[in-house]
């Protein structure tokens, strides 16, 4: 009965935290087979990507990146630089860790595109869908990652699966946003022309709007890749192997030098992936005036 005006009255407080905890636990127990199935699917696909990368001889991978770097930038210099950077990662003894990190990032990006691209189109086409999905996207981007890491761990236990989930939740947002932005900002007259010549909604979308929005959608893909890369260390916290795990271990042992090398490797991969996808954006812009 103290001063209600100064202190928030205790009687008005409520706590849903406990009941949510209980709910999550019950769900995870009651539907264990569902989550096990998801987990198996995730592990199989990430492992599939990993073995594909692992099967590729190291020199071939470096060669492919060099060629891509050259084609995307138009400069041989850039290709050579990319090759040297990758060679540096390998010679630092981090090749396998790099492949592990890459396989999770690639899996997360593929999942983000599969989910994000159609959702982005949906938002662009329907005002109602937009009003529902936009706030959820804001929530996904601002909610601290750790908050959904815990339930992900409860549902899927530690390892690749919660890491992939967390990365996807974080990285899918720019894919959705930029897809819808791109489609909404196609020149009005071009869309009108598509309609005026008797296109169905689907024809206008596939034949005109998506191709015209291609460079913006590619920018979304670039952002998605970058955000997936930025989750690497966080994912190590819930047991995903790779460069992030190396950094985490070194940090725990306060070995700064050992943490620096995988750190640099992450930067190198991020730069290469960024420049390669930037090249894609520029290419699609070239076909657009």
């Amino acid at each position: 009965m103290d001063n209600y005006l100064l202190q928030f009255p205790e009687a008005w407080q409520f706590d849903v935290g406990d009941s949510i905890d209980i709910w999550i636990k019950t769900v995870s127990q009651d539907h264990r087979e569902v989550f096990t199935a998801i987990k198996t699917a995730v592990i199989t696909s990430v492992k599939g990507i990993y073995s594909l990368l692992e099967m590729t001889p190291w020199w071939l991978l470096i060669f492919i990146v060099m060629i891509l770097g050259w084609r995307m930038s138009g400069k041989k210099r850039v290709g050579a630089l990319f090759g040297a950077m990758l060679f540096f990662v390998g010679s630092s003894g981090l090749w396998v860790h790099m492949l592990q990190t890459l396989s999770i990032v690639i899996a997360a990006v593929i999942l983000s595109v599969i989910l994000g691209f159609p959702l982005g189109i949906l938002i662009a086409m329907s005002k109602r869908a937009e009003s529902i999905i936009r706030p959820i996207l804001d929530l996904m981007q601002t909610m601290p990652t750790f908050v959904y890491l815990v339930p992900a761990v409860i549902l899927f236990s530690i390892g690749m699966t919660p890491a992939l989930m967390a990365t996807t939740i974080y990285a899918v947002v720019p894919m959705i946003r930029l897809t819808s932005h791109g489609i909404n900002h196609v020149d009005t007259e071009v869309v009108e022309a598509a309609k005026a010549f008797g296109s169905t909604t689907l024809q206008a979308l596939i034949k005109v709007q998506i191709p015209q929005a291609k460079s913006t959608i590619m920018a979304g893909l670039n952002q998605t890749i970058m955000m997936a890369m930025s989750m690497v260390v966080t994912c190590a916290l819930i047991g995903a192997n790779g460069l992030g795990m190396e950094i985490l271990i070194a940090t725990n042992r306060t070995e700064m030098g050992k943490a620096l090398m995988p750190g640099i490797a992450i930067v190198i991969i991020a730069i290469i992936l960024d420049r390669l996808t930037q090249g894609l954006i520029k290419k699609s812009e070239a076909t657009k005036t």
């Binding site: 007259e189 071009v190 009108e192 022309a193 598509a194 010549f197 008797g198 657009k288």
Partner: peptide, 27 residues
């Protein structure tokens, strides 16, 4: 009925002939 636009309304990802043939393509 068909239409010609002030800023042309052409589809820049298509060639000249694919622009001209657009109306026929959708049907």
């Amino acid at each position: 009925i068909s239409m010609v636009f002030q800023n042309f309304g052409l589809m820049s990802h298509r060639t000249v002939i694919d622009n001209v043939a657009y109306g026929l393509e959708v049907k």
